[in-house]
């Protein structure tokens, strides 16, 4: 049931997002192509976090680290004259996956708030590492001279880049959906609800959890590569702990353990930020209570509100 509904939502949502560039062109408002592209990139980051947070119950407070690694995997080759997108994005996926493998191998041994803090600690270390990379701009970060090159696919065209991001997002959601519904995903979810039982029926949750953590890291890295191209600029600030908090909030706002929810969460949060900050410099005094209210009263996020009172699967 969950799979069928997700496919439907994915189809309709993807179609709606696909209509943004022609609509923006018709209304002569090309800005919305940029805005929605940025939202989809954060949506990808949020969905990747949802894989481990929503399904695996692993509250990673350092997910922005992979965003940063992915961005640097684009920026550093570009700095040395390698503009090939396949190399850059491939490196982003591999490097952030490897980082997640190492971080996960150490962190998954802990649980609860210790897990939250140790993932945060690793992200902080990478943040300070980024600041000390003088060749690559240190704290200032560096400009990306040009977007990644993919032969005839020209990312400097806003609409083309938009569709590339959309296709990647939909693909990742489809793959993610298959992962969570697979035997592998079942083990992860079982480990979340009752780890000793999962172990008792013969699974070693550690390896499965670590694999999920690595996949999520890779997807986060890919989002980072996209973000570097979107901004044409990258800084260690991509890895700051408040970013990790924002991505986490996108997941919760949208509804965790749903994959689609975090996408909605990312879009709504960034839209709120854009609208509120245009209204008042004190927009955070509005955003803060909204955050608290969502946590207190809309426990299953916007997805829960929209989908009605269905029990959370998993």
């Amino acid at each position: 049931m969950a799979r069928g509904r997700r496919a439907l939502v994915l189809g309709v949502g993807g179609l709606a997002l696909a209509l943004v560039p022609p609509l923006a062109a018709a209304l002569n408002q090309p800005f919305y192509v940029d805005l929605f592209r940025r939202m989809m990139i954060f949506a990808l980051a949020a969905a990747s976090l949802d894989l481990i947070l929503g399904y695996g119950g692993m509250v990673s407070f350092g997910h922005a680290a992979y965003l940063g690694i992915g961005a640097y995997a684009v920026g550093i080759p570009a700095f040395h004259g390698v503009d090939n997108g396949f190399v850059q994005w491939g490196l982003a996926i591999v490097a952030s996956g490897l980082a997640a493998l190492v971080i996960g191998a150490i962190s998954i041994r802990t649980s609860g708030v210790y897990f939250i803090m140790i993932t945060l600690a690793f992200a902080q270390m990478l943040y300070y590492l980024g600041i000390s990379l003088e060749t690559y701009g240190g704290d200032n970060g560096m400009r990306l001279a040009r977007r990644s090159l993919f032969g005839p696919v020209d990312l400097t065209n806003p609409a083309v880049f938009y569709y590339v991001v959309l296709v990647i997002l939909v693909l990742c959601l489809v793959v993610g959906g298959h992962v969570v519904d697979s035997r592998f995903g079942m083990v992860i979810r079982a480990a979340r609800s009752n780890e000793p039982r999962a172990r008792a029926i013969g699974f070693s949750p550690f390896r499965y959890k670590l694999a999920a953590f690595t996949i999520a890291g890779s997807m986060g890295g890919l989002a980072g590569a996209l973000l570097a191209n979107q901004t044409e600029y990258l800084t260690p600030d991509f890895m700051h702990w408040t970013r990790s908090g924002e991505i986490m909030f996108m997941v919760i706002l949208g509804g965790m353990g749903t994959l689609i929810g975090p996408v909605v969460g990312a879009i709504v949060l960034l839209l709120l930020e854009d609208v509120l900050s245009a209204l008042t410099a004190h927009w955070q005094i509005v955003l803060g209570p909204i955050l608290i209210t969502v946590v207190l009263f809309a426990r299953r996020g916007l997805h829960g509100l929209l989908a009605g009172a269905r029990p959370r699967d998993g």
Binding site: Q29, F31, Y32, D34, L35, R38, D139, N140, Q230, Y233
Partner: peptide, 29 residues
């Protein structure tokens, strides 16, 4: 204080508000 937010604001000002001048900016990055 975020370069990516600054970039988005610039895009918004250029493409939505269609400004003739962009001014300001405190931070080098």
């Amino acid at each position: 204080v975020k370069p990516d937010v600054g970039k988005q604001l610039a895009d918004e000002m250029l493409k939505k508000h269609r400004v003739h001048f962009v001014a300001g900016v405190i931070w080098s990055n």
